[in-house]
Amino acid sequence: MSKQVIVIGAGIIGASIAWNLTRAGARVTVIADSGVGGVATPNTFAWINASWGNPEPYFRLRIRAMAEWTRLAKDLPGISLAWCGGLYWDLPAAELEAYAAEHSAWGYGISQVDSVQAARIEPNLVELPVFALHVAEEGVAEPVAVTRALLADAERHGARILAGAVVTALVESNSRVTGVDTSGGLFAADEVVIAAGVGSPDIAATAGIKLQLETPPGLIVHSRPHEKLLNGLVLAERLHMRQTAEGRIIAGSDFGGADPGADAAATARDVFAAMKAMLRGADGLKLDFHTVGYRPTPIDGFPIIGRAEGVNGVYVAVMHSGITLAPAVGLFATREILDGARDPLLTPYGLERFAQ
């Protein structure tokens, strides 16, 4: 008998897990109080990378995830994925050089470029850095489109998608989670996956599981669609930006977004003005809207992926960097849920680390 699994959350992490589980033969029900795409996924910069600030074990997980994005694009043709490269000079030169030396030694394809080379990569930048780094293998996804494609394909292969249903509690029997209680009634399962982003701690707490998350806000501005001005990701000193598949230029003070401040609309206008000033040919660029996303960030900055100790039948997958990690997390979670095989790359990221 195939395993019956409930996935709570319809963002990109929940969608990837549901898609992989369905392909592996599980009977899957996705339950989400939001629409397809979740809460954090639509409000993300969607940079796929294994960039600076990562210890080597986390770098290895991210590199594997980048490879899994390529696999996903083959298995699900038509998803919006572009390996457009990233150009960045958002750190002091000494820090950029140290990062480049470290990550190059780990096998990351970093090139050091001057202003002439930077102009070839991004010819529409008004001010060019005298020293920058370029990583050609970095990319972007259009996260809501990918999430919709994953869930639609899962549904075609038998998964149930219940959007607009609120999970009020995990249902337990003899120290085992046996399903969920929702606004639409009880649903039984052999395993429940909590992939509800910022809503995960409240759901987990109903079974006595403590998830320690921070939820920092990030404001990103979105222009109206415009002719192509950017070739890839630009991570400048004061602003990070990219152009989406539909031609919108999106930007924040970093890839997580700007601090919205007391007046998010005013902050959005300031960020947009700074973005427009950085680009040649941007006279016709218009601000369309801004988003404020809340990033589900475990307190140590690293993902929480795995089963909870002392409570059987529940699996947790909560993280910032969900866009980069999604395809690998979906694959690894599926193997662990169905076969009990935990990938070694997940070793540092279990819940047990918070009990120590």
Rank of each mutant, 00 (worst) to 15 (best):
P260V: 01
D259L: 09
T267I: 12
M275T: 07
H240M: 10
V292I: 14
S253G: 05
D254Y: 10
G252Y: 03
I249M: 08
F289C: 12
G261H: 12
D300G: 05
R269Q: 15
E237M: 13
E237G: 10
D288Q: 14
G261Q: 11
A308T: 06
S253R: 14
V311C: 14
A273C: 01
D254R: 13
R248I: 04
F289H: 15
D270L: 14
A266K: 15
G247T: 02
L239G: 00
F302E: 09
F302S: 10
D259G: 00
V292M: 01
Q243W: 05
T244C: 07
A266M: 12
F272A: 08
K276C: 11
R238G: 08
G261Y: 11
F272P: 01
F255V: 14
G257M: 02
D300M: 02
A273P: 02
R307N: 10
R307V: 07
T267N: 00
D288W: 11
G284Q: 13
D300H: 04
G293S: 08
T291M: 13
A251D: 05
G284P: 00
M241F: 14
A251S: 08
A277N: 09
T291H: 06
R242T: 00
A264K: 02
A273H: 09
I299P: 00
L285E: 01
K276Q: 15
G306R: 02
T244E: 11
I305G: 06
G256W: 09
G252K: 03
M241Y: 12
I304R: 00
I249V: 14
E246H: 11
D259P: 04
A245L: 15
L279F: 05
Q243R: 04
P298G: 02
A245H: 14
L287E: 02
R269Y: 08
Q243I: 01
H240Q: 14
L287H: 05
T267G: 05
F302C: 06
V271D: 05
T291G: 04
F272T: 06
R307M: 11
R280Q: 12
M278I: 00
M241I: 05
G281H: 03
G301K: 06
R280M: 13
A245F: 15
T291K: 12
G310T: 10
P298S: 06
G306F: 01
D283M: 08
R238Q: 13
V311F: 11
A245G: 07
A236F: 05
L235W: 11
L279N: 03
L239H: 01
Y294C: 08
A265P: 04
D270R: 15
D259H: 11
V271L: 06
A262W: 07
D283P: 00
I305E: 01
R280P: 04
I249N: 10
E246A: 14
D263N: 13
V311P: 06
R295M: 08
R269I: 10
D300F: 03
A264S: 13
H290N: 09
G293K: 07
M275I: 06
R295A: 08
D270Q: 15
M275W: 03
D283L: 08
A274W: 09
H240I: 00
I304L: 15
V271W: 03
E237I: 11
D283T: 12
G310N: 09
A277D: 06
I304F: 02
V271E: 12
